[in-house]
Nucleic acid binder design. Sequence first.
DNA 1: AAATTTATTATACAGTTGTCTAACAAGAAC
DNA 2: GTTCTTGTTAGACAACTGTATAATAAATTT
Lengths: 215, 215
Amino acid sequence: MTQRSFRRASGDERSQALIKATLASIAEGGLQNATVRDIAQRAGVTAGLIRHYFPSKEALIQAAYRALMQDLTDNVMAALSDVPSLSAGQRLQRFIEANFQAAVLDSQMLSLWAAFISVVPSDPAMKAIHQEHYLAFRDSLEQLLTAFFQAQGKAIKASETEQAAIAINAIIDGLWIEGCLAQHLLSAERLAALAVQSTEAILGMRLQANHEANC
Amino acid sequence: MTQRSFRRASGDERSQALIKATLASIAEGGLQNATVRDIAQRAGVTAGLIRHYFPSKEALIQAAYRALMQDLTDNVMAALSDVPSLSAGQRLQRFIEANFQAAVLDSQMLSLWAAFISVVPSDPAMKAIHQEHYLAFRDSLEQLLTAFFQAQGKAIKASETEQAAIAINAIIDGLWIEGCLAQHLLSAERLAALAVQSTEAILGMRLQANHEANC
DNA sequence: AAATTTATTATACAGTTGTCTAACAAGAAC
DNA sequence: GTTCTTGTTAGACAACTGTATAATAAATTT
C-alpha cells in the first residue's frame, strides 16, 4: 500500500481545525453525528490523527464546547471594545444587541448550543465548562448594569442588580432561541429591539435618552 | 433454548411504556444514550419488540418528542382548568407560574428539551413537531393576553399583543433554562416571581390589583 | 546529505449500533 | 381442550463506533 501524501501542520493549527470540524459536525446533526470519522473527514485528515491531538474523543468535544463559548463571548465583547467612549446605557444596549448579530442568531448555532446543554446536567466536565461561561456572561451583564445605575445617579442594591441581570439574561436567551428556531418569522432587528425594549421595561428606565423622558 | 416467560400487554400500554423509557433514557444521557437496547431494558422488554410498535427507532424518538410536548402543555394548562372563575390577570399569572412547577423546572426536563431542540433545525420531521407545539403555546399566551387587555378596558393592536407574547414567551423560556441549569442558586418561587414581575414590566401594568396602583 | 524527530496514514480490533427473521408462548376464540 | 392470532423473545447480521498500533513520509536538526 502506498501512503497518500499529506501536509504537516503545526500543532495548534491542526487542533483548531479539528475543533472547528467538530463544531460543524455537531451543528449539522447533533452530538450523534459527530463521530471521529466524520470529524476527521471534515478536517481533511484520517480518524487516527484525532488521538494524536486529543487523549480521547470526549476531550475533543469538551475542547469544542470551550471554544464555542469563548467565541460567543468574544463576539459579544467585540461590540463594546471597538467603540471607545460610549455612555453606560449605550454600552448596555450594544451588549444586548450583539446577541442578535447574524453570526450568533443562527439555527446551527442553536443546534450546537442545545446539543451541549443536553449533556451539561449529566456530565460533570461539561457542567464545569458551562458554569464558568454562564457566570462570566452574567457578571459582564451585572457590571454593565452597575455602571448604568451609577451613571443614572440611582442607588441600587446589589441584590436588585443581580435580579435584573438574571431577568435580562433570560430575555436575551429566550429571544435568541425563538429567533433561531423561527428565523423566517422574526428578524434580527425586531428581536434586538424587543430585547432592548423589554430590558428598559424591567429596569424602569430608558437606556438612551433619545426621546424626552415622560413622568 | 428455553424462552423467558413474559406478559402480553395491550398495544397502547406497551407503546406508552416504550415512549416513557425513551424519554428517561434521553433525559439521563442525551440522544446518544438512547439506544434501542437501553430503551428496551428500561421498559423491561427486549430490543426487538420496539420494531413491533414503531416502524423505526426514528419514529419512536418522534413519538417521544410529541408525547413530551403534549405532557408539558397539559401540565401548564391544568393550572388554569382546575380553578373555575379567575380574573384574566390571575389566569395569565397562573399560566406563567405553571412553567416553574417542580415537574417542569427540572434539569432532566431541560436535558430532554435541549436534546430534541438540537436536532430540530436539521430534521424536518422534528421541526414540524416543534412548530406545532411552539405556535400552540404562543397562541395560548396571546389569548390570555387578549382577554387581559380586554378586562383592563385597553384597546391594544393585534401586533402589540403578538409582540408581548413573544417577549413573555422568551422570558419564561429563558428563566426556565437558567433555573434548570442552576437549580441550587435560583428557587422556583424566585423564578416565578421574576417572570411575573418582568411580564408586568413589559405590559406596563400589574396582573393582580393586590396593591393600589401608583400613577 | 544524512540522521532524527514526529505528524500522519493505514489498518486492525473488540464492542456497539439499528434492523431483521424465525421460533415461541400468552391469551382469545371456538 | 383445541385452534388461532399475535405479542414477545432470542439470536444473527452488516454497518459503524472509539481506540490502539505499526508503518511511513514530511519536516527539522545535525
